[in-house]
Design a protein around this nucleic acid. Structure first.
Length: 854
RNA sequence: GCCCUCGUGGUGGAAUUGGUAGACACAAAGGACUUAAAAUCCUUGCCCUUCGGGGAGUGCCGGUUCGAGUCCGGCCGAGGGCACCA
């Protein structure tokens, strides 16, 4: 009988229809069953799906399927992060309405995702630009407003001059807008903020509870929150005309006796007194001129402006410290004021040298004599022993810190204090395509939250992008309204919410996606939350993941079900990379347009010579992309999924290659042809006990390995084990040449194991073998540990730690007889002849090492 | 500058606790089947060899150990995060 090829396009369509119609991926409403919430970061509907999506959702799908087979009630939903700037850019460029552009992209991408056969419950689909979604978000905004976690303030903000919008600190990367790449400038604007700093300590501490998060991500968040232990100290300032008090923050109170000046941030409140001082204005301008890139700032010389004030040293009577405004002091960290200790801080040293200020060393490095310790151009910033410090002399840094703080607290001059680097989250965006902020500005100047009954504040549809700036601002009527209480004239807030707000609670919405009354139902959330496995790109390590941790805390605070951590397990996958191609005149070229001739590469359209560049993460701008749709058409969804899981560990980058996908296609065919071989076998010879045993061992080993490797995210290793199994299984099929029944039973277990990876071919063969369409209802097979115990072992024989021979020995052979067997092995014999055996090491069923001496 | 991670064949990568380094796959070379191709299958893969085997070998140098890819110290290289945070 001739084997037929596996026809992926027909088979895959057939199963998509069956899965869809029977809603087999819908979770059960039986809340007594143990649950598993498997979530991948939802996509922004930019047009078409890309390979990054394919990899992300394939990884999640393996987990979801595996957990379903393992008896869990699995929630595996999908939605769209559908507000955002690209929709507006498309509107401007192509005269499309952002809504239409977005909805049509969603439609395209949804159909593409369906091609891949992901086990998603599409009934739970949500979209953040849907008013049924954002009305709840507006409600949460108002709740946070009530809880005092939202406020408005005038502040210097990061302004992206290309996108014409404000960016959060987290969205400024190397001084450039995270999306536009434009140099960010500082601008003073009145903005809404979420008080994320209120949770700084909790967000920091709670990271320790996230044992299923990558250390790397936790570390990044820890650094971002930046917890520092120190103290605040009050200084008395005096000038000819007046006295004042200011508070400074320091993490090095131990260096107090080395203080030689006080430095204030340029916008410290005291600067009000100098607003009209010509010299001060000059100084301020000079500071702003420097530019915004972090590198430029870091390299800038330290300079300052001396005030007429002097500060009293808290411990040294009559010691007066000059007070400066300095360009390196930040207003929004600590108190915006510091004391300078030049000997033990590099910035302070640079500053002190410029203005000839005192440099008093107070920390002596270990093992150094005080006479030999001179500060020249480098400050000593490490720990040591206190000198020149009155009551602290002789103490180490740690103890000195404690003593100083104790003394400050006793004398009411200061107190221990923890400070965070984290700033509040600026959420106002001057954009149309986002969630409107439900706030009114009444003509009498008061700020009125929109009453809940008037929600949602909907986006107007009739908008124009003819003028630059925010279309909501320019809309002829939308923003004009009246106060619901007084009837006074009022104007709507025209800023919309940062789209990171949208994605900060969507995982909660999935628990109750249809609920009209509230964003999520407490009982649903109690059952489904937290997300058991969250999967996405590491680029969200800080932004999205920190915001979500904050937002779910903030909205659930004080409710019957407080959410501490929304994501129990986190996995950050690597990117999909491809070689880059450039013509000699520097034009990026798509891989599909590159042809090879005698080892050289050419653009098939222009015939220009192509330079092959390094492999980089697939991106539209470099054109090193491969369209998933065309690959699915050619090789099938199972092959594409298989590729995504093969070779590279999921947390590392993967290299896309044509040979690789072709190899995956061959493997899918091989699964199919193996099933054909079994079924077409008409031999009637009965299988022997030994053969049967071997087959059982084979599948038992596979079950153990696949289970372990899925649970540990070693999908690439699981793939290798499948290859190994299929190779051995085919060999057995050929060698044993007996009645097929036993092979069928083994192969059925194999199909259950591989179903999470390649569902289409698995379902098809399962049906062919069993005449049933119920592969998804099978139970994940158990393995019998006793079958894995081998009767015979390869015992490695080492002489002086080097492998010299391998012995096949029965389990539990005594050490002595093994040793005797060793001595009779030719190789060993040669090597230990005329030598003294010093030592024997025996590791049971594994290894013997004979140590000899000349 | 500070912090973190990673260095294994031509390539992607295996190697649960220190115990047979290179599983599995891709690419390459040779071969089988075929009129031919595709598909499939087999063999090979550093150096020496009398074909039994021997030697070197996981970025480099050193250490601990009977035994190190794995642990420790010091270099070198790549990638990532933070960057005037007092």
């Amino acid at each position: 009988m001739l084997s037929e090829k596996f026809n992926h396009s027909v088979v895959e369509k057939k199963w998509h229809k069956f899965w869809d119609e029977n809603k087999i991926f819908k979770p059960k409403s039986d809340l007594a069953q143990k649950k598993f919430y498997c979530l991948e970061m939802f996509p922004y509907p930019s047009g078409k799906i890309h390979m990054g999506h394919v990899r992300n959702y394939t990884l999640g799908d393996v987990i979801a399927n595996f957990k379903r087979l393992s008896g869990f009630n699995v929630l595996h939903p999908m939605g769209w992060d559908s507000f955002g700037m690209p929709a507006e850019n498309a509107a401007i460029q192509n005269k499309l309405h952002p809504k239409n552009w977005t909805l049509s992209n969603i439609e395209t991408m949804k159909s593409q995702l369906k091609l891949l056969g992901f086990s998603i419950d599409w009934d739970k689909e949500i979209s953040t630009c849907d008013e049924n979604y954002y009305k709840h978000q507006q409600k949460y905004f108002l709740e946070l407003y009530k809880k005092g976690l939202v406020y408005k303030k005038e502040s210097l903000v990061n302004w992206d001059p290309i996108d014409n919008t404000v960016l959060a600190n987290e969205q400024v990367i190397d001084g450039k807008g995270w999306r536009s790449g434009a140099d960010v400038v500082q601008k003073k604007l009145s903005q809404w903020f979420f008080k994320i700093t209120e949770f700084a300590d909790e967000l920091h501490q709670s990271l320790d509870t996230l044992i299923n998060w990558p250390e790397k991500v936790k570390l990044m968040q820890r650094n971002w929150i930046g917890k520092s232990q120190g103290c605040e100290v009050e200084f008395n300032l005096s000038s000819k005309s007046q006295n004042k008090k200011i508070t400074i923050f320091t993490t090095r109170p131990d260096t107090m006796f080395g203080a030689s000046f006080i430095a204030l941030a340029i916008d410290h409140p005291i600067s009000k007194e100098y607003e009209e001082n010509v010299e001060f204005i000059k100084f301020k301008d000079q500071c702003y001129k420097i530019g915004n890139t972090d590198e430029a700032i870091a390299k800038t010389d330290k300079f300052g402006f001396q005030t007429e004030y002097f500060a009293d040293h808290p411990f040294i009577p009559n010691k007066k410290l000059p007070v400066y405004f300095a360009n390196f002091v930040l207003m929004d960290y600590g108190t915006g004021a510091i004391f300078g200790c030049p000997a033990h801080d590099q910035r302070d040293l640079d500053f002190a040298k410029k203005y000839n200020l005192e440099i008093t060393p107070v920390i002596l490095p270990k093992g150094l004599n005080q006479k030999d310790f001179i500060i020249k151009n480098e400050a000593f910033t490490e720990d040591g022993t206190l000198i020149n410090s009155d009551f602290l002399n002789g103490l180490n840094t740690e103890d000195a810190k404690k003593q100083v703080i104790e003394r400050f607290e006793k004398e009411k001059k200061g107190k221990g204090k923890i400070t965070f680097r984290l700033r509040d989250w600026g959420i106002s965006r001057q954009r149309y395509w986002g969630c409107p902020i439900p706030i009114l500005y009444r003509e009498d100047g008061s700020i009125i939250p929109v009453p809940e009954k008037d929600l949602p504040v909907k986006l107007p549809e009739d908008i124009s992008f003819d003028k630059p700036g925010n279309p909501l601002e320019h809309h002829p009527s939308w923003k004009y309204t009246t106060c619901p209480e007084t009837g006074m004239k009022a104007i709507r807030e025209t800023d919309t919410l940062d789209t990171f707000v949208d994605s900060s609670w969507y995982f909660l919405r999935f628990c109750s996606s249809q609920n009209e009354q509230s964003g999520y139902d407490i009982n649903d959330a109690k059952y489904w939350m937290p997300v058991d496995q969250y999967i996405g790109g590491v680029e969200h390590a800080i932004l999205h993941l920190l915001y979500s941790r904050f937002f779910s805390r903030a909205i659930s605070k004080g409710s019957k079900f407080e959410i501490k951590e929304p994501f129990n397990g986190l996995f950050t996958q690597g990117m999909v990379c491809h070689k880059t191609f450039k013509t000699e005149d520097g034009q990026w070229t798509y891989p599909e347009d590159v042809i090879e001739k005698n080892g050289n590469f050419f653009d098939k359209n222009s015939n220009k010579k192509i330079i092959v560049g390094s492999s980089e993460s697939m991106s539209k701008s470099k054109k090193n992309v491969v369209d998933p749709q065309s690959v699915i058409d050619m090789y099938g969804a199972d092959a594409v999924r298989w590729f995504m899981l093969s070779d590279s560990p999921p947390e590392r980058d993967i290299q896309w290659s044509d040979e690789g996908i072709a190899g995956c296609y061959k493997f899918i065919q091989k699964i199919w042809s193996t099933s054909e071989k079994i079924l077409n076998n008409s031999n009637k010879r009965k299988i022997t006990e030994n053969e049967k045993n071997n087959l059982e061992k084979l599948i038992n080993k596979l079950i153990k390995e696949i289970t372990f490797n899925i649970e540990h995210f070693h999908f690439n290793v699981a793939v290798a084990k499948f290859y190994e199994f299929i190779n051995n299984f085919n060999k057995a099929l050929l060698d044993y040449d007996c009645d097929k029944q036993e092979f069928i039973e083994i192969f059925k277990k194999f199909l259950i194991l591989i179903y999470p990876f390649t569902p289409h071919v698995s379902f098809e063969i399962w049906e062919k073998i069993t005449n049933k369409k119920d592969l998804h209802l099978q139970k994940w097979p158990d393995f019998k540990e006793e079958l894995l115990k081998e009767e015979e072992f390869n015992i490695v024989i080492q002489v002086n730690g080097k492998k010299r021979a391998i012995l096949l020995a029965k389990k539990n052979t005594s050490e002595d007889s093994l040793f005797n067997m060793c001595l009779e092995t030719d190789n060993v014999k040669k090597l230990i002849e005329n030598k003294k055996i010093i030592k024997k090491i025996y590791i049971k069923n594994k290894l013997i090492n004979i140590v000899v001496h000349e």
